[in-house]
Each structure stands twice: as C-alpha cells, then as structure tokens.
Design a protein around this nucleic acid. Structure first.
Lengths: 170, 170
DNA sequence: ACAAACTAGTTTGGTACCAAATAATCTGAC
DNA sequence: GTCAGATTATTTGGTACCAAACTAGTTTGT
C-alpha cells in the first residue's frame, strides 16, 4: 500500500493519521481546522507581500478602509466589531492609517466620549482603486474552484464562525 | 424583496453585494477569502482563550509541540517549515517554550551551525495530554458539519494553500 | 590551501494583535 | 444637583509575527 499522490499536504495528513492511529482522535476535524489556519496565514502573507505592499497596508488596515468605504463613517467600537478586531488594536491601527493620511478621527459634540472615523479623500481614492486589484488577488487565490465550490467554502466557514461565537456565549 | 434570514453574516454579505453592484467584482471570491480569514482568527482566539490558556500556549506554540511530538527532534529550519513560520519567529518561540521547560535545543557536533529542537519529558507529557483536548475543541468548532463536509472543507482549503504557493514561485 | 560562495540560525527593527487597566464622559436614582 | 455606576476610547504590557541584516560555520573551485 502506502500510496503517494504527489500532494505533499495530503501526504502529511496521511502520515499524521498513521502516527496517531488508535488514539481515537477526530482527524477530519484536525485537518480541516489546520487547513483553515494555514490557508488564512498563507493568503495574508501573500497579500501583504504583494498587492498591499506598495501601499504599506496590513490586512487589518485594508479591512478598516474597506469597511469605511462600504458603510461610511462610524464609531471606533462599531468599526472594531465590523473588522473583527479588539478596540485596543483598532485604536493603534487607526493611528497608523491617520498618520498615512488615509482616515480622520472626529470627536462628537453630543457625546464627547465618542470618536467617529472616516476616510479622507486620499483614503477613499486608495480603496476605490485598490479594492478591485485586491479582489483580483482573491480570485486568483481561489483559482480552480468552481463558483459552487466557492459558495460552499464560504458557507462551511460561516458555520465555523457561528460555532466559535456560540462557544463564547457560555 | 429584501429577504432576511436571521444570519447576520449572510446579511452583511448581501449588503456588500448591493453596495458594490455593477462594479464587476468577484463577490464569491471576496466572501470566501473573507470567511477564511475570519474563521481562522475566531478559532485561534477561542483556542488561546480556552483550552490553551491554562498552559500559556499560543497557537504557534502548540503547533511546535505538536510537530515535535509527531515527527520527533528536528532542525530549526525544518521545524519552521512544518509549522509554517519564518525562521526568525521560530527562534523566538522556541526560546519561549525552552524557558517554559517544554523543549530543548541541542547543538550538532557534525555541523556546528545546526541546532536540533526536541521535546523535554514535560513537553512530551503536556502535548500527549493536551492534544486530545485540543482535538475535542476542533471537533466542537466543526459542530454541525458532516464528515463529508469536513473533508470537503479541508480539500478546498488545500487548493487555496496550493494556489498561494504557486503565486510565490513566480 | 584558501578565498568566495553558500548555509543555518539568530538578531534587529518594526507592526499587529490581545486582555486588562485607565481616563474621560455620560446617565439615572435619589 | 450630585454621585455611583455604566460606557467610550485610549493606554499599557506583553507575545507573536515578518523581512532583512548579520554571525558563525561549511563547502567549493581552482
């Protein structure tokens, strides 16, 4: 036996399965979660080293610009929530983007605790120009997957996200 | 029209689609990539705040212990490769694990540039005890997905990983 | 034999990221 | 009207992570 198929990733999964045989582990779960993490790290690295590099944008930075572009000016708290980042992280990253002249902070008079963040003209131009190119990168990342497979992938991952949120509620 | 279905994630995707209608973007790709990243971040946060927290282990730290457990003592370079981390990051994290008494470094006499990393007895005990619990967490993360869906998810993500590797080769 | 090229690991300098503590402001109960 | 508790953003202290520069050790070509 010991079939090899020229896919090192799959071979590695098989090696692990053999190594841990008889330990009553859920190998399908292990492989799936592993691949979620590896795929995310790989895609992020490739984006930051490629399409985002000329603009000195991190993945998180792009996400912030994108959310502001789609939904407009909003508070730090909501922005953090939309971008799936902690408030503290967001404060720092908005600072970075502000120093790059891509976003502005605005203090609210009606509630002086609150701060609204919005795109500057430069930020607006950048995201409008960059997002289509970023999207082309995303499409390249999914090269070889049919539309149905892309939709299925997104659906399965939504289930994963929902499960982790459920775990937090307890 | 304007059907809502009690899934905020899906609603958000729909909002974006409406917002960007007519821009000739690949929304299936965008949603899929977005969800890869969000799922990975969510799973990681939940693991580090849950099953890994009592042991002060990061996701990367667990990965290192796991690789050493499965494949045994190995060089820094190979370990970095297996764990999908840069050599520099690995140096730091092996340092952390070493200070926790979970791994040891060993200098090779036959080639004095090389350093092998291996589990200590404590490290070995920890990963043998922890991995089944970590695996239970992984299974919980995939709750509601059939075995076929888990396998499909892993397969689609392997394609994504392979695509990003292809992009690097150019 | 020995300099040039190469290799393995570490260090450096920087951002991103989190949780928890803090500062500033607002609200409601009295 | 005031003050105790809630709420918003920021600061703090720490790890993780990367790319690029660096250090020490090894191989190769002549």
């Amino acid at each position: 036996m010991n079939k090899r198929d020229n896919d090192p990733l799959l071979d590695a999964e098989q090696d692990v399965r053999t190594r841990l045989a008889g330990m009553s582990l859920d190998m399908e779960a292990s492989n799936a979660v592993n691949n979620i993490y590896r795929a995310a790290a790989a895609v992020r690295r490739r984006a930051e080293g490629g399409v985002l590099a000329p603009h000195n944008l991190s993945w998180g930075g792009l996400t912030i610009l994108w959310v502001l572009w789609i939904w407009g000016e909003q508070s730090t708290a909501r922005l953090a929530d939309e971008c799936d980042l902690s408030k503290g992280t967001l404060t720092g990253m908005v600072g970075t983007l502000e120093s790059q002249g891509l976003v502005v902070r605005r203090k609210l008079d009606s509630d002086r605790r609150r701060v609204l963040v919005d795109l500057t003209d430069d930020g607006s131009k950048l995201i409008a120009d960059l997002f289509p190119r970023f999207n082309a990168f995303e499409a390249e990342v999914l090269d070889g997957l049919t539309v149905a497979e892309r939709i299925e992938l997104a659906r399965l991952l939504r289930m994963v996200i929902r499960n982790t949120e459920k775990m937090a509620e307890r």
